[in-house]
């Protein structure tokens, strides 16, 4: 995973000083074996067609065979893409599709200001963790 570094102004803190976002954490995943096999995560970078192909493959040949639906997850910027994938399976493929909106908690790792030494690399920075909530989507496409 790449550690992306960028500056952004945090709105929640009172002072307007720019804090350094060291890393954005992924969502918390506690999946069972079946969930791992039947869930597909959509990123904003995921190509639309390859997502469609992957889901279609899973729907045609579900493994393990007893799963009832495939779950597609998307959050933030990827919500729109997730929805359009859901629409595709609903209208073009006549699948039963269920859409559940949720809010997802994620963690940001932010550099603390009391780094008296100035390290060359951002990975050496002292950090604190901060919670952030974003909108997410869970789509169930039935087999």
């Amino acid at each position: 995973m790449k550690h992306r570094v960028r500056n952004y102004s945090s709105n929640s803190t009172a002072h307007t000083m720019k804090t350094k976002l060291v890393r954005k954490y992924p969502t918390v995943k506690e999946s069972s074996h079946i969930e791992i096999k039947s869930t597909i995560y959509i990123k904003s970078k995921t190509p639309y067609i390859s997502a469609i192909k992957r889901i279609s493959k899973k729907l045609q040949d579900p493994k393990p065979a007893n799963i009832k639906y495939i779950t597609i997850m998307g959050m933030g910027k990827a919500v729109e893409k997730t929805l359009s994938i859901a629409c595709y399976f609903q209208t073009k493929k006549q699948r039963k599709v269920e859409i559940i909106t949720t809010s997802v908690d994620v963690i940001d790792e932010i550099a603390t200001e009391d780094n008296e030494e100035s390290p060359v690399s951002t990975e050496d920075l002292e950090t604190t963790l901060k919670k952030r909530t974003i909108s997410g989507l869970r789509v169930k496409i039935y087999v």
Partner: peptide, 11 residues
């Protein structure tokens, strides 16, 4: 222990 994506763990 049940976490399946350990990259969410703090440094």
């Amino acid at each position: 222990s049940r976490l399946t994506d350990p990259s969410v763990l703090p440094s």
